[in-house]
Design a protein around this nucleic acid. Structure first.
Lengths: 113, 113
DNA sequence: TCGACAATTAAACAATTATTTAAATATTTG
DNA sequence: CAAATATTTAAATAATTGTTTAATTGTCGA
């Protein structure tokens, strides 16, 4: 995760419709949801949803996969984790902190195992 | 943390100057930095900095304290943590996940102690 | 209290971002 | 292959956000 990608991710999440869409997908699990279902759930027009999903996908916070004539979108958990790590990086100037030094995802996986 | 405040925080971070200012403050530790030092470090005009710090402060990601004729800004670590928790909330539909279920900050503190 | 410095506020302008309606693409089913 | 459905793309408009220059507020030290 670098500055530019973090910025892109944050910008993608910094809008009501996209934030809600992302949260619905995060909570929906790896299978995700079809675009139409999301549009219904968020109560927005298909073009508006498409516009916003594009932003999330471009930031790699979500992924799309076509299945029949539906397109399923799902959250990219790794990307979300990378963003969180970026934000907490070198927190507090290296001093003791609420959260352990955010390192690589690998390190966190090990820590949590 | 609720949707509206998360959105406000994300919007505050979703801009190059503000993200960089926030990161500098996160890494500067609790004492923070005077506005002028930040402006110099970010190479922007004082009004531009003021405009952006206002956004971060309004989202409560940073705090200001006056000291003599300087105003020191510092990161609010709790606010940052709350945002992170909000993003990972109910991740993966409750299934096993990269990160343990994000609960209250209290719970995380206990977990990390 | 005057002059200098630190920072903010105001106002005008520039740039970016979101929403809408209409048209297009792709996929399934009859 | 034609009709129907799911979704995207395009184009126009509306709304929001960032930048700049100039003026203002507040604090310190001579």
């Amino acid at each position: 995760m670098n500055r530019a990608r973090a910025l892109q991710s944050l910008a993608a999440l910094a809008q009501a419709t996209r934030l809600e869409a992302f949260r619905v997908l995060v909570q929906a699990g790896p299978e995700g949801l079809a675009a139409g279902d999301l549009a219904a759930r968020l109560d927005i027009t298909p073009p508006a949803l498409s516009f916003h999903l594009r932003g999330l996908a471009h930031a790699r916070l979500i992924q799309a996969r076509q299945q029949g004539r539906f397109i399923y979108y799902s959250a990219d958990y790794d990307a979300m984790q990378s963003l969180v790590d970026f934000l907490t990086e070198n927190c507090c100037g290296g001093a003791a902190c609420l959260r352990p030094q955010a390192g690589s995802r690998r390190a966190n996986r090990r820590r949590l195992a």
